[in-house]
């Protein structure tokens, strides 16, 4: 029991030292600038399709739910602002975070453990190239940059799919749908931007957990499998816990 606690503290300390090493490698930009662009392509552009599909369905199902509830209380005039409020602030950053943790977290952890096991990391060290600057920082930065972008896309698409449900399917008046958004119930500076801030933290969390698990991989195939599983599980739980904290902080 005592050992278990000590292990948690030691693991946390190593994790923080790891993140510090990543951040301190900013000093050699010629190593990470182009790699960061490549990683944005992998992490951000590669996840775009997934996010588009997810946002369509989240928008539809959430609008459906709210439509049923608001209809009971004859408050349908507020439909779009209720939907937008829920999606912009919570659903979009959290769902995007969880999806990316699944898609990118596992990939990054597997990649890193592969690089580690096939001695590419050692080889970079032999060439005098810091793997922190060349392998980790680009992924870390790409995660922080890509998540807000994906959240923006998620927001925009889900509000349109919400519109499609309400206006096209349920015959709501176009103006009645859009007005509550503009009329000061949902604020761009607060609701949309808060979601973006949150997602930056999620992006950093997902990637750093995945890198950490990948970098300290145990030997063998089972080690690789373990590290990518752990990356996804820890990142997902971390996102949910962090979401609560950040919501309290930002509201």
């Amino acid at each position: 029991m005592f050992d278990f606690l000590i292990n948690i503290f030691v693991g946390m300390g190593r994790f923080i030292r790891f993140i510090m090493s990543i951040m301190s490698s900013v000093v050699s930009p010629y190593l990470w600038v182009w790699q960061t662009v490549v990683q944005i392509n992998m992490i951000g552009v590669g996840s775009l399709f997934l996010i588009c599909i997810a946002s369509i369905f989240i928008g539809l199902v959430f609008t459906f739910q709210m439509y049923m509830i608001l209809n009971k209380f004859s408050g349908l005039s507020q439909l779009s602002s209720v939907v937008a409020f829920g999606i912009f602030r919570e659903l979009s950053p959290v769902v995007t975070g969880l999806l990316i943790a699944g898609r990118v977290g596992s990939t990054v952890a597997a990649e890193l453990s592969q690089l580690r096991q096939s001695e590419q990391v050692d080889s970079l060290l032999m060439w005098g190239i810091s793997p922190y600057a060349y392998l980790m920082l680009p992924r870390f930065l790409a995660g922080i940059v890509c998540l807000p972008v994906l959240v923006l896309v998620f927001d925009a698409i889900s509000i349109y799919s919400s519109w499609a449900y309400a206006v096209l399917l349920k015959g709501m008046e176009n103006q009645i749908f859009w007005n509550p958004l503009l009329d000061g119930n949902v604020f761009f500076e607060q609701d949309v931007l808060y979601g973006l801030y949150k997602s930056m933290f999620f992006g950093g969390l997902i990637i750093s957990v995945a890198l950490f698990q990948g970098f300290y991989v145990k030997r063998g195939v089972s080690g690789m499998a373990q590290s990518s599983t752990k990356a996804v599980v820890y990142a997902s739980l971390g996102i949910l816990a962090m979401d609560y904290l950040l919501s309290q902080l930002l509201y």
């Binding site: 925009a156 958004l181 761009f188």
Partner: peptide
């Protein structure tokens, strides 16, 4: 594009 779209459809503080 998404940024500007959201900025135009939502209210402003």
């Amino acid at each position: 594009a998404a940024f500007f779209f959201l900025a135009t459809v939502t209210g402003r503080t």
